[in-house]
Simulated scan of single mutants.
Amino acid sequence: METRKVQVTGKSTYILTLPKKWVTKSALGAGSSVNLSYQEDGSLVISPLTIRKPTASRRLVMKESGDELKRNIIGTYIMGNCQFLEISGIGDQQEIKNEIKELCKVLIGFEIIEIDGSRVLIQDILDTDEFTIEAGFKRMSSLVFLMFNDLMEIQRTRTPENIRDIIARDEDVDKIFFLLSKLFISRLNLRKTSKKDRLRLIEAFYYRLAAGELERIGNLIVKIVHDLERASFSGEEKEKLLEFGLFTRLFVQDSVNSLRLLDIELANNLLQEKENFRAELLELTGPATDPALEIITDSFGRVKDYARNIAKLTIDLSQL
């Protein structure tokens, strides 16, 4: 960090010199205009009128693991440091190419523009001005609530359509989570931010953390669905599981509302909530009880743990 002195010219004009290295890198010169952004903490951010989007290409080489390649693709997407991504060394492995195609479906803005032999070329066409972190978090929470609704219906009827809906919605939750991560990194790098984004940087950070908890909740709902498919319960167990599921959904909804409304009282109430339902369910277990009962109740308990983490974020954020 550099320190510079404020100077006075005339009677009421204050001036500050700019670092030559930054001026040159930003392609500025005499007469150039810059943006001044006043921050709520009293700081001032100076940026060029148009921050250039990254245009460089990045190259990833396929090695031994397809999973490693996919992790690198996701990391490149989130960091947003290139407009074109070239993946080489795939050879004739059509399965890897298909996995890359499927992965790009959950990375909003990543479009495959060329597949040539052992090479795949991807372009990042995302316009960040169309999205906000706050709106994305709201959409993620809505999808998770819909997944809970489908889960309750599955517990009643085990309809295959509801199972497919849950899996599809979980994929949408993943899409938005990756997008929010990308938008947050863009904020950190002072790249183009949506004009509609009203969150301060610290708020954007906490929303990104909360989005991670929602993403984990979505994954657990899918796990619960698969465990329910393989299980067989008594009427009393089914009734208790349904009751527990409804209570857990309300718990998650309250945690999200506590953050969006910055409701400290609600957040503290959630953190003090005792787990009575899980104890009641486990009282039903006996020699003939399906072992999946404890597995499912444990998953519901983990969902509540993730929701509590959101409530804790609310309390932290309220201290600003």
Score class of each variant (00 low, 15 high):
E114G: 06
G212F: 02
E114T: 05
E130A: 14
D67P: 03
Y38T: 07
E273V: 10
E237L: 08
V222Y: 07
L250C: 05
T248Y: 06
I310Y: 00
L188A: 05
F244S: 14
S57H: 08
S255Q: 01
E237R: 11
L183D: 04
S57K: 14
I154G: 01
N219K: 13
V23N: 02
G10S: 14
L270Y: 01
S318T: 06
L121S: 09
G75D: 04
P160E: 08
S43M: 09
T24P: 02
A168L: 09
K53T: 11
F233Y: 11
E294K: 14
D67M: 05
A267E: 00
R119F: 03
E265G: 00
D290N: 15
P291H: 13
I122E: 09
R187T: 11
V256Q: 06
F251D: 09
F145D: 12
E294W: 01
D129Q: 15
R187L: 12
L209P: 02
L18V: 11
C82D: 00
E237W: 03
S57N: 11
L282F: 11
N189D: 10
C82Q: 11
L293D: 06
Y77M: 08
F84W: 06
K101E: 13
I96R: 09
V106F: 00
D174M: 01
V256C: 12
L228N: 13
I90K: 02
V256Y: 04
V120N: 01
G301S: 12
R302C: 00
D263E: 06
E203G: 15
Y14R: 09
T132Q: 03
V173C: 12
S33P: 01
K175S: 15
A288M: 13
I166H: 04
S141H: 12
N149R: 14
T24N: 10
Q272Y: 04
